[in-house]
Design a protein around this nucleic acid. Structure first.
Lengths: 197, 197
DNA sequence: GCTCGATGTTGTCAATGTCTAGATCCGTGG
DNA sequence: CCACGGATCTAGACATTGACAACATCGAGC
């Protein structure tokens, strides 16, 4: 009976089922009390870990940005822009519950750790676009970076919203990234990784 | 005294203040009862017009798609792709409350009129990308269309989320659209619209 | 071994979405 | 002229929720 007074992993478990639930029904429908029930704990318990509803969203977003930065790191290190774009979208689709909350400032508190992880992800993204084929860019670098971010964010959002249901998201991302920075499919600079043979 | 039992424009007024409130605090924080209060009406009144909370969101989204289709029509008719992109973003930024709800299927009911207006907007978007400079596209047309949509949707979303606070959204859109389809800023094909006649 | 902070419980409160039943208004056909 | 029916709004009720406060229990470190 001593087993259950302190749950032990309440924080992790609540975060996990929150991500599940948000992925299924969106952030608005999420109920703290329901999460507590699902974790076998009383309704007040989650508050000790997250403070409030927004605190929970903030924790989720922080986790999300951290994981995003990690996901982007390898391809960024390799200077492979197209693959960084693909990784971005792959991340969003593999963690829909987290992604649904990461760009919703109204749901988030301005925590230092959130800021930190968000900056880390932003930095990864920035150096990802730093490795772009120089001559191909006809607009200021800053704008190119924003455009690239917008492209992948837009793709992820639309796919998650079910607006591009009948498309292969990752192939689409690859194609979009190549189109944006002007590498024709047969170009020697950055070819599609799989087709083209 | 007879004035106020039937409000007369309750539906319009609720929609308007809902858009305001959503623009300020997001869809989650919206309270039907608060809207009723603001309209000087009892808490049950809005239900007769929208049925439920989701009904209200659906009505807003429907209005939004209708206005979007209208906003895109002129530039689409002119075959001016870059300007269509700009109009898309301009629309989203000028009606943040509507746009915040248009791509959130969890908040929407599957109404015939919603479907209708959404299709209308989608059709506008599709013919907008139909007028792209042929030689510039190195990927399948379908993918190019999706990429273009993702770009403008991503730009609008990020700006609305405050993630691109320090950029000029419309200039950024113009640049992004040009970059995506390879028209250098000074190209004769699609210059910024200013002196058309 | 004791204390103190972290974690979890229990009870409470105001607010909300939704439902139902009834009141009021308005156009329309007899 | 009027009665009737539908549309609009009111009024009351109910379950659920987020937040808060007071208390119980556990565990780590002095």
């Amino acid at each position: 009976m001593v087993d259950t007074y302190h749950h032990g992993r309440l924080r992790q478990q609540v975060l996990a089922s929150a991500a599940e639930e948000i992925a299924r029904s969106g952030p608005e429908m999420l109920s703290l009390r329901e999460l507590a029930r699902r974790a076998g704990v009383t309704h007040g318990a989650p508050a000790h870990h997250f403070g409030s509803r927004r605190g929970l969203f903030t924790a989720l977003a922080t986790e999300g940005f951290e994981a995003l930065a990690d996901a982007l790191a390898p391809s960024v290190a390799r200077g492979d822009f197209v693959e960084t774009a693909v990784e971005y979208v792959r991340f969003a689709l593999s963690r829909p519950g987290h992604y649904a909350v990461m760009f919703r400032p109204e749901l988030l508190e301005d925590t230092p750790s959130l800021r930190e992880q968000r900056d880390r992800a932003a930095a990864a993204l920035a150096s990802g676009t730093a490795s772009l084929p120089e001559g191909r860019i006809g607009i200021p670098v800053e704008q190119a970076r924003h455009a690239a971010w917008a492209l992948v964010h837009g793709l992820a959002s639309l796919v998650l919203a079910g607006a591009l249901a009948d498309a292969d998201p990752l192939a689409l991302t690859r194609a979009g990234a190549q189109q944006l920075f002007g590498s024709p499919p047969g170009d020697e600079h950055s070819r599609p990784r799989k087709a083209e043979k």
